[in-house]
Structures are given as structure tokens and as C-alpha cells.
Design a protein around this nucleic acid. Structure first.
Lengths: 291, 291
DNA sequence: AGTTTTTTGGAATATTCATTCTACGCGCAA
DNA sequence: TTGCGCGTAGAATGAATATTCCAAAAAACT
């Protein structure tokens, strides 16, 4: 007996539906139900025959099970678990989730002001969550240490990266780090970079499409022996290639507009960590002991 | 040229292998490499043809890529990502974990690098959520309408507001709005404001402490009869007083550092709403009807 | 510029996979 | 016991998918 109504659209719903109807199912279907409840991840990823083998049933039985709960086939049921697997873990599900999100929103009336706002808030929230996953503690610590040790920090970033770069430059100066903001005013970015040396660090913020000026600056810094810290959307961008360390940021993208919230957040964290780091090292030198 | 040794057995290994050999790969293979690095989750779950489409390549190219790294086929490479997805994820099952995760982390001792990161992520997330409450749909709509009707938009913002202002200016230009970014280079901000008139709008971004230059600019704009849109942390700031409309943003504050994520988000929403608005009005004029 | 090598796109093919179908088994009622 | 119905297994089918292969294009080299 197949349920005629629409099938559960989320793993949560399906889970509940299974629990509810568990008693009324046939023996074999109960067996499958149990497996589905116990190993949702397997369901999401493995192929039907693998699942069947693990659960000790026939593939066809799984198809029957799916139909029992209103799905046209087992594949559609799997999709539910896949989506859940992705969205359940921000690190993993980021792209997919935003895509879904977009797909969902774009079907709505699609231009109310509040909708766009909600859309962005959600997108940026996800991007922020994702940040803690893509940037490891170790990378962060290393980045801070790099900056801390630097004689002088150069910051560069054009176009979309400009706000992030300017924020970084401003904040670094606020915490008394000697900072040169390579803003490229009057086309003087090369000139501004002129004085960079081996004891300095260049922080290059860049997202696709990478500005030629930034690339040049990075190359110059590299030949000068300066360390390079790249904040970028890709590990293999022209800028990341030459970098000593890359902090990868995945921003939310809604209708071709990528945001910067996560990048700003990262920049802020860098600066504050730096502030702590330097006070800590100072204290160390004074007291010779630290917690 | 296929690597004869055993292929990377974990996602981490593969990632490293890709980074190492990235430079020596052909163009198309680099394109795939990038996608693999950026979206490992997609790799794990989607079918080859879907991946191929998303990455903008042929399915066969992906097979080639996999073989390049020593796998007998693309499926085996996928398996690596699948396993990684499952193992890295074993504990996590449900969607709301992320929220819990943050809540938990933020209580920790809070001075290591990761702790600061988590703290900021949480703070910014909350600030984003708040945004939808402090900025009403009506205000948003009015702001967009103001910008839409303006002959030219002037954008100003210094110090901490500078990144937001620069983002706004950049984005507005991207959507073909005539925009003047009053960046104050060489102390010329007054000069840059010189041409503002009654049909123009000045968007002033400002947070405490309010930059004198911004205040002057707003006063000038007011005497010239231009409309003023204020993005600020207070309704009674010197800038908001003269404004036709104030969009209030409450940013998260962690250890005296206020963030900008919410402001950036708001700026982005403004611009995109504007983009929709203008296409809509265009359509209206053409068809006289809209959905 | 011409030749060889490498890379690429896309159709052809092979394989795997999900689904359907049919016959069989088991329990139950008369 | 016999007939009936539900449930099931497993092969058969058909669809989807991965992989191979080749011709064309691009790049490298002479």
C-alpha cells in the first residue's frame, strides 16, 4: 500500500514517518526501516546494492520501501538523505546548500525587498559558519605569527577585495602594527610596494577575477623575499600559488553577487588574534612565564 | 602521463598532490583541479556528468584528471571523497548541530585562536540575524527607491566605515548606477562633493566616532538640497539627524572591536534590490504589466 | 611556416545500477 | 488439507552512468 500524499521532503520528516508507521510494516520492511534510521549516511552515499547487502536485503526490497513512503523510487529517497548530509554539516554542504537556497528563493515572488534581505542574511550566515571549517586553527595561528613577526605589513586588494583590504589596513594600524595600505591611488601601487623587503609580509586579498595589479604586487614581493599571506577563494589562484600561507574563504553567492561578510570576519579575527599575540609575547619577555 | 605509484588514499593526500602538481597540469586539468579543491563535497556526491557541468568541462575530462593522479577511473577518486565525507562527518547527523556547535564553543576559555574565531562567527551571525529586525522592509524599499531615482549617487565613509563605503561604491558602479565615491584622497573630499545637487543622493556610512569629514559632507549635501541616506549605528548621530532616511545597523562587538559583517550585508542587499528594482521599472514601462 | 606532440570535445561503447516483473514461499482461514 | 493473499527473492529489463576512443584543435617545437 503506497502512500499517495507527497513523500517526506527532509530526513527529519522521513525519520518521523518511519517511526510512526514502523509497527505496521512487514518484517522485511521493518528491517530496512531500522537500517535507514541507523545509518542515514550510508543511505545518502552508497549505491542501492551496497546498501542492500549491508542491510541484508534485496535491492528490490529497498525500492519497495521507498515506494511505501511515497517516493517514486529509491533514488528520490536517497536524495533526501544526501541533502541532509550536506546541509547538516556546514563545511561540507556549503555550496549545495546555497544552491538549494537560491533555487528555493528564486521561485518565490522573487523580488520583494524583505526576501532579498532574508536571502542574504542566510547566505552570509552559512558563509560564516563555513569559515570555522575551512580555516584551521593552525593556519590562523601561523598567519598571526607571520604578521606579528613582520617588520612591516603591506596590504593589497582591488575591486571586490578592496573593502576587505582597507579594513585590514585600518585595523592593523589601530593595533599599532606598522602597515602600508597599497591602495594603488594614482596608479602608484608599484611605487608603494617598492620598499618591501625580506622581513616584511604582504597580505594579498583577492577573489576572482584576480586583479592584475595584485598579481604583479605578489610577484614583486616574492622576488624581494617577503612573505606572502593570501586571503583568497582558491588555493590555486595566481596569488595563492606564490603565497607562504593561504587562508581560503568561501563567500556566499546569490545571483552572481558574492558577499564579503566572511572575509571581513576573518580579517577581524586576524587582527584581534594579533593583538592578543603581541601582548602575550610582550608579557613573556617581561615575566619569563606564561599560562 | 599517468602517475604509476599508488593513488592518494585520502582526501587530504589528494589535496596535497593536486596542489603540488597543479602548475604542471594542462589548462583544463587545472580547471578541474580547482573545482576539486573548492568543492570536495560535490565530488563526493554528485554524478560525473553533474560535476562536469558544474565545473564547465566534459565528463571525460574528469576521468582523465582522475587517471592523471593514478586512479583507475573517476569513480575511485570519488570514493576517496565519499569516505572522507562519511568519516569526517560520522558524529554529525542533523541540521541544527551547527547552531549548537557555536553555542558550545563560545563558552570556552576564549583566548586561543580558534576561540576568537568562533566568538566572532557567533557575534556576526547574531548581528546578521538582527539586521532583519532593525531594518524594516519599508525602510529598505524606500532606500532603494531613493537610490533608484537619484541622478547620481555619492558615497562617503571614513575610518571604520570606509570598507563599507568602498564596497557600496564599487557595487553600485557594477550595476550601472552613476556613482561618485568620495574617498577623500589628497583631502579633496569637499571638492569631490562639489557637484552634488537636488536630484542626487548622498549615502553616508558612519559609526562612532563620526569622522568630521563625513559630517561636513552631509551638511554640504543638505544645503544643496540633496537627499541623504544614512547607514549608521545610531538614529541620532550627527549624520542621521540631517538624513532623509536612516538604516540602523547594530554590529556585533567583541572585545571593543566592532565588526562590519552586517553592514556589508546590508550594503549588498541594497545594491541587489536596486538591480531588481531598476529592471522591474524598465519592464513595467515596456509591457505595462508585471507578475 | 610546417611538423610533431599534446590536449580537448564529443560520440560510441561498456558497465553499473535501479527498477520491474514473475514465480515462489509462507502464513492463514475455511 | 487446500486455496488464497500477501510478501519476497532473484532474474530480466531498461535506464543512467562511467569510460574509452578517435578526430579535431591547440600548443610546442623546428
Amino acid at each position: 500500500m503506497v502512500q499517495k500524499t507527497t513523500p517526506p521532503a527532509t530526513a527529519e520528516e522521513l525519520r518521523n514517518a518511519i517511526l510512526e508507521r514502523h509497527g505496521t510494516l512487514s518484517k522485511r520492511l521493518q528491517q530496512i526501516a531500522r537500517y535507514v534510521l541507523d545509518e542515514p549516511n550510508e543511505l545518502a552515499i552508497e549505491t542501492l546494492s551496497v546498501i542492500a547487502e549491508r542491510a541484508g536485503v534485496q535491492p528490490s526490497a529497498i525500492v519497495r520501501f521507498a515506494k511505501e513512503f511515497g517516493y517514486p523510487g529509491a533514488s528520490q529517497m536517497q536524495r533526501v538523505f544526501r541533502d541532509n548530509l550536506l546541509s547538516g554539516n556546514a563545511a561540507v554542504g556549503y555550496g549545495e546548500r546555497v544552491r538549494h537556497f537560491n533555487a528555493g528563493v528564486s521561485r518565490k515572488k522573487s523580488s520583494g525587498h524583505a526576501e532579498v534581505l532574508a536571502e542574504f542574511i542566510e547566505g552570509n550566515t552559512i558563509a560564516l559558519q563555513n569559515l570555522s571549517q575551512t580555516v584551521s586553527q593552525a593556519d590562523l595561528a601561523e598567519a598571526v605569527s607571520m604578521i606579528d613577526k613582520a617588520d612591516m605589513v603591506y596590504v593589497i586588494g582591488f575591486r571586490r577585495s578592496f573593502p576587505v583590504a582597507s579594513y585590514l589596513a585600518y585595523s592593523l594600524q589601530q593595533v599599532n602594527k606598522r602597515t602600508m595600505f597599497v591602495d594603488g591611488v594614482a596608479g602608484l601601487s608599484k611605487l608603494q610596494m617598492q620598499t618591501i623587503g625580506p622581513k616584511d609580509v604582504l597580505i594579498a586579498v583577492s577573489y576572482q577575477p584576480y586583479a592584475a595589479e595584485s598579481i604583479e604586487a605578489v610577484e614583486l614581493a616574492a622576488t624581494r623575499g617577503a612573505k606572502i599571506l593570501s586571503i583568497s577563494d582558491s588555493l590555486v589562484s595566481p596569488i595563492s600559488k606564490l603565497a607562504s600561507l593561504v587562508l581560503q574563504v568561501r563567500e556566499s553567492e546569490v545571483r552572481t553577487f558574492r558577499s564579503l561578510a566572511a572575509s571581513i570576519c576573518l580579517a577581524q579575527v586576524l587582527v584581534i588574534d594579533l593583538a592578543f599575540e603581541s601582548t602575550r609575547t610582550e608579557r613573556k619577555t617581561k615575566r619569563g612565564k606564561s599560562t
